[in-house]
Write a protein that binds this DNA or RNA. Structure first.
Lengths: 352, 352
DNA sequence: CAAGCAGAGGAATGCGCATTCCTGCAGGGC
DNA sequence: GCCCTGCAGGAATGCGCATTCCTCTGCTTG
């Protein structure tokens, strides 16, 4: 039982021999089983494993057992704080379940989700969580739906965060409702004329937030001039560019809603660059409440989303037994009013 | 060759039968090999695989081949933009090499690196990249070193980002030099008396930046009062708390250096909360140049690190053949002066 | 005291695949 | 016309492990 370390890797058989037992007994001693092992033998096996630095070959275990403890996480971009927060939540939850997380990023090319899903099926991953924002391309959606079914047929579980098109367990973010509530609150501050930096027109998330916001505004008797809706990237630079375009066009909106926080920050940068005083010259609101951005000035009004919970929630769905009907877990956002959207008083013409 | 999909998963043997060839031929047709397969047979195999939705069992392949294409990525926290950027770089590079990335987070508990490394050895991962900040605990370092050797003995490759204690391939960030250069630049702006928010005292990265900064200040004939060095968390809240403590103590520093950007942002928040005007009341500098934080106001002076390159560089090391001596790739930061550290003119008592 | 039974160790099997080895066949050289 | 060579398909093997099935031991029961 010396500390010799073979150059090749140590197998269970090595451990068994070192402990003077059979392979079967060694396996049972290390993993437990329905069968019991005599304490002294168990002791010896454990000691031998320790001494040899044994580490079970996960591939072989997976094959013998017919299943793995791998969970695939597919998202657009880890460097985006929205996704990385969700990922953190999922990873934390996975660790508690003794699951291993493998991660893949599409970096904006949604069709890669298909490849990754096939790859994860090959890995015999126990489950997959797909967080990318679903696009509108019908063909892509259908193919993804087919891959999802194939994955489930092979015994895997699938959950989405934030989508509505594919029948599968989903954590749905109430983008529409959250944006509506935000619009409501902003109208409550006295704003009536709004602009929207709507992000990519093919991303469902962006569309929902934009639509919900406009609904809310209309309901509160405000208005969004169609010219004041600018599309662009769903990123900081997209927000910056969209804001500039809006200013170039000219607008009489008193408040601009960017469909996520990073865009809002880009918009604020554009406003500053153009010499518009903040927050007095233009109110700005975002969506997500990204932790890293809570200290920008003026502090950003937004809709807080429990991002880590989204990831954790998806993981929870995926470890449960599958239901007959796809489950949907709805998550509400919470409007957080901050300095970037001060009450509007002086600019409204006095009435009454 | 119909579209039937068995409820169990499709194996290579199924494909072979469907194509009317042997398992061996099917394998060769799908993966290529030194041996050639007659074109018509190859065609049939490919068609059968397609029709059956075949996806090779990665576990079985790994076992048969004796190696995997898994790369493990171990970091403190994906939700931290520093780490998530590095991760993004590594993932991008991994994809180009057809490698699968599995990710694990220690969430601040460095001893988990040991567990993860053992787990990855069990996975027969081809390589591991460890990005956590090495702590000072000698025992932990030794045990980690032992695990690294065990991993390499088993045929795996290991690379670190930012450490100096363990003999292994490493992407070294020139924290010390970067901080020195920053100090230099700040002295060039007229500052002489500095405070340092030094972060966790047991993190090497934090220590190096702090020490380098003080070196630079001294060299430029400035000073850092020992009372003006405050330790605390390496996070936004840590920066906030440390800044408050500094203000409570009272300081005559004109510029405060936080050892990373998120701490600097926390410090700015604290200054604002205490009514200190920015940047005139106190200059603030950070380190990293986190992309998400480039729009804070006043814009933060910092040391720009090519974070994605760090991850990509580590991955590159890990796919190369191992060298006899551990390789070290040094990465310099670049000082970026912005509004948060305006030139100091009026506050210095006039001389000459 | 014999038969029956439970409990625990060990041999053998198979998971899905890559790969080696074997075999049959066609073509070329003498 | 025969043998040798080269090529390609197929059978068989083994990767490392969990698990099933078999066997042996030691006990209880009638």
């Amino acid at each position: 039982m010396s500390e010799r370390v073979s150059s090749a890797s140590v197998t269970l058989l090595d451990v068994a021999k070192a402990a003077g037992v059979s392979l079967a007994t060694a396996s049972r001693a290390l993993n437990g089983s329905t069968r019991r092992v005599r304490p002294d033998l168990q002791e010896r096996v454990l000691a031998a494993a320790e001494a040899l630095h044994y580490s079970a070959n996960a591939q072989a275990q997976a094959m013998a057992r017919g299943r793995t403890n791998i969970v695939g996480l597919v998202l657009s971009d880890v460097a985006d704080p929205y996704f990385s927060s969700i990922a953190a939540g999922a990873i934390r939850a996975a660790e508690e379940e003794q699951l291993v997380v493998t991660m893949a990023c599409t970096f904006g090319r949604e069709e890669r989700e298909l490849e990754y899903l096939a790859a994860l099926r090959g890995q015999r991953a126990r489950a997959v969580i797909i967080v990318g924002s679903r696009v509108q391309d019908r063909g892509l959606i259908d193919r993804l739906g087919a891959e999802v079914r194939a994955f489930e047929q092979a015994g895997g579980r699938v959950a989405f965060v934030s989508q509505r098109k594919i029948p599968a367990d989903t954590v749905v973010v109430e983008n529409r409702g959250g944006a509506r509530a935000l619009a409501d609150a902003l109208c409550g501050l006295g704003h009536r004329r709004f602009a929207v930096l709507a992000g990519r027109s093919d991303l469902l998330t962006a569309r929902d937030r934009s639509a919900g916001f406009r609904e809310g505004v209309l309901r509160a008797a405000g208005s969004v001039d169609p010219d004041d809706v600018v599309y662009g990237g769903f990123t900081r630079d997209g927000g910056y560019a969209a804001m500039n375009e809006l200013l170039d066009r000219g607008t009489d909106a008193t408040c601009v809603f960017a469909v996520n926080d990073v865009m809002a920050v880009g918009a604020m940068a554009a406003l500053r660059d153009r010499g518009v005083p903040l927050p007095s010259g233009m109110a700005v609101a975002g969506f997500d409440d990204i932790a890293t951005l809570r200290d920008v000035t003026p502090a950003l009004t937004t809709v807080r989303l429990p991002l880590e919970e989204l990831g954790a929630g998806a993981l929870a769905m995926v470890v449960q037994e599958p239901a007959e009907q796809p489950r949907v877990r709805r998550v509400r956002g919470e409007v957080v009013l901050r300095e970037s959207t001060p009450p509007l008083v002086q600019r409204e013409p006095a009435r009454a």
